[in-house]
Design a protein around this nucleic acid. Structure first.
Ligand SMILES: Nc1nc2c(ncn2[C@H]2C[C@H](O)[C@@H](COP(=O)(O)OP(=O)(O)OP(=O)(O)O)O2)c(=O)[nH]1
Ligand SMILES: [Mg+2]
Ligand SMILES: [Mg+2]
Ligand SMILES: [Zn+2]
Length: 567
DNA sequence: GCCGTTTTCGGCCCGACTGTTTTCAGTCG
């Protein structure tokens, strides 16, 4: 069982306990444990195999009880508490609480009335059965119907590029309002999380009512969920929800910190405030008399606690406070550090543009080099090149490199790793390439052991320099193949192969927590776009975000180096 | 259920919006 599956056990236990109106702090404890398990870069199974229950209990947020449940799952394949809870609730009941605006209290009430599925709820609401319940009324009943519709129409989480694009559009609209003095997109988007649930936009203004009135009337707004004088929530026409928060200038720092999150990070800084005899809210840092003593700038939110500034991408409760207190935060890699793109395609295979077009676009980004890396023969669906076609393609790349000044065009290929771990071309072809990058495009459904061996075998070829999109996952479409990164990463280190952070918003592969692990193991990383067209070269920023979330610095990233120092 | 440079017991972040209330509960950020 992988860590995400372990985490899911505890997310579910938390959910069930909430629906039983159990102790809220116990529920929070389960959620904290789930969150921390998702942040681990080593598998619980492996931690357990190496250090037993004791090692498991050293994980933050995991104590004797949750530790025992992990042990039970490993030993017996189930957690009896969860099995029991599942029996207490009818199938489909959990879905009720996923309706926006309908929480655990209401769900519990509905259960008593035997309304325990979405269909039954809809029927009850439509026939006016809910309005007479205690604490209910006609409006609440209508809101439940609206919530049902919202859930049906819900798009789920959004990829980073679509969320970013809509944030930019929304910011453009808000910039037209003279009452808006500052506008800052916050939330998971600012933290560079791989998917985004909603936009969280902060505005500074002394005229919050005017901002709110104009905000909810914007053409891009489809539905208004709530509207107050400091906070409003809407759904945009593309289905993306957006929250707007308006504060005074003097609260800008505290509010941007609050609204950027993460929630767990926020709670921690509020606990630090408590220890110092202060209080932190989105309005500032306050002393016991209630006077504001800080929080006008975001930097001050850290400085007041003797912490170095923690960049948004690190605010995930993954050790950032300890590092900031000791002055040991990494100096994170930046987009402007990137000197080239080492994974791109042309119309020789499944790309849209020519070598020259890709090169010109790369020059416009200020790059020093690119690697043309088209597909190889086994990847037929992508127009993979036969040996002779590749040799001809090579000549074209070399010719383009001669022709185009101010950019080094390196000749490479994204060589398929065959099921037995051998490569799609013999070494006599690979020898002629400047840089060989490799990846898996077929036979995804191998057992973990075999897949791991397949990859390690490929990486052991001394001509191989980069392993691309190492897990093969496509966000929202398919899980990655089963692979033991605890073996692949050390192999990459041993054979001096760099691991790719694929910057495509649907891949973002390797993920942040494994980037951190790779760094620990001394593995070099490279950030590449896998661009299939000139405009996709600009996806680099999303890969940089992943690297930053993985605590990586310029020196950890191969393509921040000059071309002569590459690999 | 977790956790401890004041604690191994008694805390656990703080505030906005809505609908139903006549002072607050529920839900959410
Ligand atoms: N202090 C505190 N802050 C919270 C809480 N819930 C949310 N926040 C803050 C931190 C979040 O990053 C920010 C925006 O909330 P969201 O629900 O939109 O979460 P976020 O953007 O992190 O993730 P998302 O991708 O939208 O699911 O508000 C909370 O319970 N307490
Ligand atoms: Mg959000
Ligand atoms: Mg939000
Ligand atoms: Zn590719």
């Amino acid at each position: 069982m992988n860590n995400l599956e372990f985490a899911k056990i505890f997310w579910q236990i938390a959910e069930f306990l909430e629906l039983k109106a159990d102790n809220p702090f116990k529920i929070r404890a389960y959620r904290a444990a789930a969150q921390n398990i998702e942040s681990l870069s080593k598998s619980l199974e492996e931690i357990y195999a190496q250090g037993g229950l004791k090692a498991i209990e050293e994980i933050p947020g995991i104590g004797t009880h949750i530790g025992q449940k992990i042990e039970e799952q490993i030993k017996t394949g189930k957690v009896s508490v969860l099995t029991q809870l599942r029996k207490e609730f009818p199938q489909g009941f959990l879905e009720l609480a996923s309706i926006p605006g309908l929480g655990p209290k209401t769900a519990l009430l509905l259960k008593k009335l035997k309304i325990d599925s979405l269909a039954k709820l809809e029927k009850a609401a439509k026939s006016g059965q809910l309005r007479d319940l205690p604490g209910f009324g006609a409006k609440k009943e209508k809101n439940i119907l609206r919530g049902l519709n919202l859930k049906k129409a819900s798009h789920g989480r959004f990829l980073l590029d679509e969320a970013s694009a809509h944030a930019e559009l929304l910011v453009e609209e808000l910039e037209k309002l003279p009452e808006a003095k500052k506008i800052l997109p916050c939330g998971s988007l600012r933290r560079g999380q791989e998917t985004v649930g909603d936009l969280d936009i902060l505005v500074v203004s002394d005229k919050p009512n005017i901002i709110m009135d104009k905000f909810v009337k914007l053409a891009m707004v489809k539905d208004i969920l709530a509207k107050g004088e400091t906070k409003s929530s809407v759904i945009l026409k593309n289905g993306l929800p957006a929250d707007l928060r308006v504060v005074n200038e003097k609260s800008f720092g505290a509010a941007s910190h609050y609204f950027t999150g993460s929630k767990a990070h926020n709670i921690h800084i509020r606990q630090l405030a408590h220890q110092a005899g202060w209080k932190v809210s989105e309005y500032g840092i306050f002393n016991q008399k209630g006077q504001q003593i800080g929080g006008q700038t975001e930097a001050d939110m850290f400085a007041k606690f003797r912490l170095d500034y923690i960049p948004p991408e690190l605010r995930e409760m993954r050790g950032e406070f300890e590092a900031a207190a000791k002055g040991q935060l990494p100096k994170l890699v930046e987009l402007s550090d990137i000197k080239g793109d080492l994974h791109l395609h042309t119309k020789a295979t499944d790309g849209l543009n020519s070598i020259e077009e890709m090169a010109e676009a790369a020059k416009k980004l200020g790059y020093e080099y690119i690697l043309i890396s088209d597909h190889t023969q086994s990847t037929r669906v992508a127009g993979g090149l036969s040996e002779s076609e590749m040799l001809a393609h090579l000549k074209k790349i070399k010719a383009a490199n001669k022709k185009i000044k101010g950019l080094e065009i390196l000749a490479g290929a994204e060589v398929d790793i065959l099921p037995d771990g051998s490569l799609d071309y013999p070494n006599k072809i690979l020898n002629q390439l400047d840089i060989v990058i490799v990846s898996i495009h077929s036979n995804f459904k191998m057992p973990k052991e075999k897949m791991t061996q397949r990859i390690v075998t490929a990486l052991s070829n001394p001509l191989v320099k980069i392993f691309c999109h190492p897990t093969g996952r496509l966000i929202g479409q398919r899980e990655g193949y089963e692979v033991d990164l605890e073996k692949v990463l050390p192999a990459a280190q041993k054979y001096n192969v760099a691991i790719e952070i694929n910057a495509h918003p649907q891949r973002l592969d390797l993920t942040d927590v494994y980037c951190q692990r790779a760094k620990e193991l001394g593995v070099k990383m490279v950030i590449s776009t896998d661009a299939h067209s000139t405009d996709q070269l600009e996806l680099m920023k999303y890969g940089v975000m992943v690297a930053r979330r993985g605590w990586l610095e310029k020196k950890d990233i191969v393509n921040t180096q000059a071309v002569r120092d590459l690999l």
